[in-house]
């Protein structure tokens, strides 16, 4: 009886030692990979920050209005945000590779799913950024055109353009990451269609005079007396 217990304990001890002997090198390898990843991520962050500084991304971002949104969200500059994001993406990638070295059952599948999902997240972020840039550019163009043409409520025109583009961008980004795909498409179609119908009705019923004046200004033979300005050239 006593021998059996001792034998069992020895067996358990041997198994534990064997497991530790097997696990410890993997753990060390994981730590090395994570530390190496940290180093690589730091270097890449430094290089990316320098590269983005050379391309004057912050100025483009400021011009596009993206920096304003970042400031509102208490986020750093575009260059800093991208370099930090790149740092974390790189390091998380190394961490996941390190964890996969441990060979824990079930974890491999989860990690590979996460890796498959990452590109979609990056693309969604890219869509959001480009949509933001386009929305800001076009809404400003609409504002300037409306102001210079003397149209009433130029800011409303500008905000309408911005709102429509934001809706489009957000729907595209959500669809990219597969969040409630059907709902997003349906919601977008309803909101967009309703907005267009509303604008058409508002312009057609409430703004007949404005529509007539606009068409006359652009396609009429002569400008009305009230629009006369000194010849610029």
């Amino acid at each position: 009886m006593r021998d059996t217990i001792v034998q069992g304990l020895e067996q358990a001890y041997n198994n534990l030692v064997h497991m530790i002997a097997e696990f410890l090198p993997r753990f060390v390898v994981m730590l090395i990979i994570i530390l190496l990843g940290l180093l690589v991520a730091f270097v890449l962050r430094y290089l990316l920050r320098g590269l983005l500084g050379l391309t004057k991304l912050d100025r483009v971002s400021e011009d596009a209005g993206a920096s304003r949104v970042l400031r509102m969200a208490d986020l750093p500059s575009m260059t800093e945000l991208l370099s930090r994001s790149f740092f974390w993406l790189t390091w998380i990638g190394f961490i996941l590779i390190g964890i996969s070295v441990l060979g824990v059952a079930g974890l491999q599948e989860q990690i590979s799913r996460l890796f498959r999902f990452l590109p979609e997240v990056v693309i969604a972020i890219l869509i959001l950024f480009l949509g933001l840039v386009a929305a800001n550019f076009l809404s400003r163009a609409a504002l300037l055109a409306a102001v210079n043409a003397g149209l009433p409520s130029p800011r409303l025109v500008s905000w309408s353009v911005r709102f429509i583009l934001w809706m489009l961008t957000i729907s595209m980004a959500l669809e990219e990451i597969g969040v409630a795909r059907q709902t997003v498409i349906a919601a977008f179609s309803i909101v967009f269609g309703a907005s267009m119908l509303g604008l058409a009705l508002a312009f057609g019923l409430g703004g007949q005079e404005l529509a007539r004046r606009s068409l006359e200004r652009h396609f009429g033979d002569a400008r009305k007396e009230e629009d006369k300005e000194p010849h610029p050239l």
Partner: peptide
């Protein structure tokens, strides 16, 4: 050119 109107759009 006439001093006003029918010239190029100011913008």
């Amino acid at each position: 050119q006439p001093p006003t109107g029918s010239g190029p759009d100011i913008v």
